[in-house]
Design a protein around this nucleic acid. Structure first.
Lengths: 145, 145
DNA sequence: CGGGATCCGTAAAGATACTG
DNA sequence: CAGTATCTTTACGGATCCCG
């Protein structure tokens, strides 16, 4: 069922080889669910910011809370628990008074950090272009009305 | 398939000095909100899967709907609109009967695709380790009860 | 076929108060 | 200080109907 596009200029920079279809959700649907759960956990709003913050070394709970603007203590706790559960973050409790809890990235977490860092860099460097695209889109919507 | 993410932007294992705090959300809080909105849009559950599907070339609406298991037509429409608004996806309407709409990644979208692909690869290759960590964590919870 | 509009249930996020 | 528990609120997502 070859469907070609009748458009004028299709960049098509990516070479789509017939045999190579890596990571197709349709053909390995068993793994897909797990992958999706991993992606959902590792790429959600707060996880990215937490991993980013921990990328520069261990931090205490209150330090993270202050570093990540707008996060509630509940979301910080929940997200840290999930990251710990996935083996991305190590939690160290020092039972003093007052208690002290430090969080740090595991080796696995550090490998994830390089990816989130790349994501952050991408967002930073492409911010003007994205904002321009948004403005154009919204302007076109207004014009069509 | 040219998945080079490390060329210029990906920092490999930055040295973690105590004083240096690059990309801190606290010190550039104006940009932080925009970056967060970009990250929220580009890393949410469906966007990643759509970008991944479009990474192998243009697709129609119904193709995407079949390719992405579990997505509703509403979420597909909404997410595609948002991606289009951010300049990541190009929407081409062919006003035939029945109508035909094709979606493809823009150049900006392709640069994002390399990142999501890297994320997917990371999730795939680290899946066993993550599942093991989850099992360990859950087992420890049961033991503590 | 590719949506838009509407209604609605649920689950996640926020705010607040309390505790070891 | 680092959570837990509870309540409220939000918006996410699905189902349905409709139209060009």
């Amino acid at each position: 069922m070859d469907v070609r596009v009748s458009d004028t200029t299709l960049p098509q920079k990516l070479s789509v080889k017939p045999g190579t279809t890596p990571l197709d959700c349709a053909q390995d649907s068993s793994a897909c669910a797990v992958i999706r759960s991993i992606l959902a956990r590792t790429t959600d709003k707060w996880s990215i910011l937490i991993v980013k913050s921990l990328g520069r070394g261990p931090h205490r709970f209150s330090e993270l809370r202050r570093a990540i603007d707008g996060i509630s203590q509940r979301m910080l706790t929940l997200t840290l628990r999930n990251l710990e559960r996935d083996g991305l973050v190590l939690r160290t409790v020092t039972p003093t008074t007052p208690p002290r809890v430090d969080y740090e990235l595991t080796t696995l977490g550090e490998s994830l950090w390089t990816l989130t860092e790349a994501f952050g860099q991408w967002a930073m460097s492409n911010r003007p272009e994205i904002e321009a695209a948004r403005a154009r889109f919204d302007a076109r919507l207004d014009a069509d009305l």
